[in-house]
């Protein structure tokens, strides 16, 4: 997933890790580059998010509007 603040790609294994601060399971992913708190995509939305990521990879770095 891409960080919502700095736009960098958060590595897959980092996405699966919890920082351990929140009791009862963490639902946020802190970007290792800038510290921004990104919401962890729940299982039922993962397919939608993966489609999104597949699309963004197809367009690669085509980010300019």
């Amino acid at each position: 997933m891409k960080c919502g603040f700095c736009g960098r790609e958060i590595p897959a294994d980092h996405v699966q890790q919890s920082c351990g601060l929140c009791k009862g399971g963490c639902r946020k992913i802190h970007c290792p580059y800038c510290g921004h708190e990104n919401p962890a995509t729940p299982a039922y939305l993962r397919r939608l998010a993966e489609k999104k990521e597949a699309n963004s990879q197809t367009h690669q770095e085509d980010d300019h509007s």
């Binding site: 939305l45 939608l48 980010d63 300019h64």
Partner: peptide, 23 residues
């Protein structure tokens, strides 16, 4: 480093909003 400015993608917005609502 400033990432490029982009048009918001409805799918991104939907996923992020629903995820935060679930939280």
């Amino acid at each position: 480093e400033i990432p490029p400015l982009r048009m918001p993608q409805p799918r991104n917005v939907l996923v992020k909003t629903l995820t935060r609502m679930q939280w």
